[in-house]
Design a protein around this nucleic acid. Structure first.
Length: 642
RNA sequence: GCUGGCGUAGCUCAAUUGGCAGAGCAGCUGAUUUGUAAUCAGCAGGUUAUCGGUUCGAGUCCGAUCGCCAGCUCCA
């Protein structure tokens, strides 16, 4: 092979020989005209680049088309440029910030005097379509720092970014039509590739995410290769909106907030309280089976405790203010751990006592800035299903294993698949690197021993120890914060925790923090959305609604309701208006079972059972059999058939 | 906290350029007794979030406060 050629290896192992300096577009053309047309971008030695990128060395190359998931962020990033093109066209003075692709789409930040209106968005979207129709190529150019300074002389935000480049860093700019941006790329070949996009909303966003800097106006949008994908995405957004726990919470009378009570403080209505009670009962029974002991600690605690724990120092801005009582200062507790530690320390502990597993449904109060509050998902008062395990260093691995079982059993009951993340040592961390290394390895090895897949969140641990995060995946594919297991090198030290070992010496125990649901408020809020308000029977506030067909059968229906209630089933009798009206009402309130009793059922001692959402498909069965079925569903925590 | 938007009956929403606050559902009363997603009629329901201002006149315009929403920042 001559010095002026390079070797390109394709995913199928095939090798091509091309001129040095050939572009990825050339590679695609060399493979075939069909691929050349379909090509969107390319992956060179694992890095996504655009087709203009040239090859100077031998490389492994994969041409990316619409079908490759890696191509979507490229499209979206290009869509962000298209948006900026339109905004610059309609608002010539607009300053440009950053415009990256994000998980579900893209955004671009602008510095403008007048914030954008919904009408502006429509106008921008139309203008984007014009520039897309023009099919301008995305042109990449490497520039010197000086050139770049000149090109962006009128863009202070870009100039600021420019100053951050290292001396030897390659500075590239991209042009499409009239729009030039300082950008690393990659981009699709031309604006004509951008066919299916939508601008979604606008909001303020701080420049560089720094609240001390000026606020820019951000426009969010999304883009797809195929029309159907865009439609599907918009349909999902609509579906998510319909499942909104704040809307369903009101419709189903589960919870509310009240300005007089205070923002971020949840009022659990009777029906919401039943859902919570069922979860707590289930979990209480579960953890007792898993070797936990229940404790209770006070809601208002002397500041002394939080001075020792360090919360007053490190968590102060999240704590409610102090109240003075007889010269002492008290705070609503923001966390339960110090209380549990105090219980641990109430007696001398022997290695024979360990591990000590202490659990509490502990209500905590944290000051959250008003702008972040959100329904039940982000509040100022919430109840954690909190537990702390005090054990020896050697016991950590086994305790983690037990937790994995517990997590699995807990989440299975709600039908949540989950993924695991191992969060490791952050920049600012307490404890020695060796200690961290050991702890991280323990966690990783335990997961591996159980054959569990996990990803590593590098630097995502708390300053006081590494953790395992379990992410729930809900019915419409969204990820939620689930259980966490956190190792703590800090508190045992601060409180001087000790146990007496086999050697009659004092040792420092290891401490694990763990939650399963995290916060009852957030978890139930998430469950409402997961089930779209249609709780499985065991969680349903009302499990059976008994419907007599006419007044004649009311007494029989009342007796049957009593039978159900007597068996421990949450059943009510509805003897109002027409049967149709009551069926509708039960459906609207998502009651899982309707039990209809009329002449035929009264005579035969049966019941006509209609399942929520099943329409007219009903089943007539013996009453005792129905009671058994409902009890069985409750016992097994049966989920609705998908 | 910040930027923008919003706040009308229990709920969902109307109310020309500033000109008599309305409807459906829910509730109550009565009639109807119904076989699978809304029977009919009547009644009641409001200091238009709160406070102040402009105006002959404010749900509508202006200011402040409170709350909510979309984000930013932060997080269970």
């Amino acid at each position: 092979m001559s010095a002026s050629t390079i070797k390109v290896t394709l995913p199928d192992g095939r090798e091509l020989e091309l001129e040095k300096g050939a572009s990825l577009g050339d590679v695609a053309r060399a493979i075939g005209p069909g691929l050349a047309k379909a090509a969107v971008a390319a992956e060179v030695d694992g890095r996504v680049v655009d087709l203009l990128h040239t090859l100077e060395h031998d490389a492994r190359v994969r041409i990316l088309t619409e079908r490759d998931p890696e191509a979507l962020p490229v499209l979206r990033h290009s869509a962000a440029h298209l948006l900026a093109t339109a905004v610059r066209d309609l608002r010539p003075g607009a300053g440009i910030g950053f415009g990256p692709a994000i998980d579900e789409g893209f955004y671009y930040d602008f510095e403008v005097d007048e914030p954008f209106t919904p009408e502006d968005l429509e106008a921008f979207e139309k203008r984007m379509a014009d520039f897309a129709a023009a099919d301008d190529p995305f042109e990449r150019r490497v520039v010197t720092r000086e050139e770049a300074r000149e090109l962006f002389a009128d863009d202070p935000l870009k100039l600021e970014r420019l100053e951050e480049f290292d001396e030897d860093e390659v500075i590239t700019v991209y042009r499409n039509g009239p729009f030039l941006d300082l950008c690393r790329g990659p981009h699709v070949p031309s604006t004509g590739r951008l066919k299916h996009f939508k601008l979604l909303n606008t909001a303020g966003a701080y420049w560089r995410g720094d609240e001390k800097r000026q606020m820019l106006q951000r426009i969010y949008g999304t883009a797809f290769f195929r029309k159907g994908d865009l439609e599907e995405h918009l349909r999902r957004l609509e579906e998510a909106r319909k499942r909104d726990h704040r809307v369903l919470g009101k419709q189903l009378d589960l919870f509310s907030t009240d300005a007089r009570v205070g923002p971020g403080l949840i009022l659990w209505h009777p029906k919401g309280a039943i859902v919570r009670m069922e979860i707590e009962n289930f979990e209480r029974e579960l953890i007792l089976r898993h070797g936990y002991e229940l404790v209770y600690t006070p809601h208002v605690v002397s500041e002394t405790l939080f001075e020792i724990s360090g919360h007053l120092e490190n968590f102060r801005e999240n704590m409610f203010g102090a109240m003075e009582v007889e010269g002492g200062r008290y705070r609503p507790k923001p966390m339960n751990c110090p209380g549990h530690i105090a219980i641990f320390q109430a007696q001398q502990r022997s290695y024979r006592d360990l591990p000590v597993r202490m659990a509490e449904f502990g209500t905590v109060y944290r000051y959250e800035r008003s702008g972040v509050l959100h329904g039940m998902l982000r509040v100022r008062g919430f109840t954690q299903d909190d537990a702390h395990v005090f054990c020896t260093r050697e016991q950590v691995s086994e305790e983690i294993e037990r937790l994995l079982d517990l997590v699995d059993e807990m989440l299975a009951a709600f039908g949540y698949p989950y993924s695991i993340e191992l969060a490791t040592r952050p920049e600012k961390a307490l404890g020695s690197p060796e200690e961290w290394e050991h702890a991280e390895r323990t966690l990783a090895e335990t997961l591996e021993r159980r054959g569990l897949e996990y990803t590593v969140d590098e630097g995502g641990g708390a300053f006081y120890g590494p953790k395992l995060d379990f992410k729930l995946i809900d019915a419409i594919g969204r990820r939620w914060q689930g259980p966490t297991v956190q190792l703590d090198f800090n508190l045992p030290e601060r409180f001087g925790l000790e146990y007496v070992g086999e050697d009659n010496e004092r040792h420092r125990p290891v401490m694990l923090h763990r939650v399963l649901v995290g916060s009852m408020e957030r978890f139930v809020g998430g469950l409402i959305e997961h089930y779209a308000g249609a709780f499985p029977v065991w969680l349903a506030p009302e499990q059976v609604r008994v419907l007599p067909i006419s007044e004649q059968w009311t007494e029989d229906a009342r007796a049957f309701t009593q039978t159900l209630v007597g068996a421990g089933i949450r059943a009510t009798l509805d003897e109002r208006d027409t049967l149709s009206y009551r069926i509708r009402d039960a459906e609207v309130h998502k009651v899982p079972y309707m039990a209809v009793i009329g002449e035929r059922e009264a005579e035969a001692g049966t019941v006509a059972v209609r399942r929520r959402g099943a329409g007219r498909k009903q089943e007539v069965m013996e009453r005792a059999a129905f009671v058994d079925r409902v009890l069985e569903e409750i016992r097994t925590k049966a989920l609705d058939p998908a």
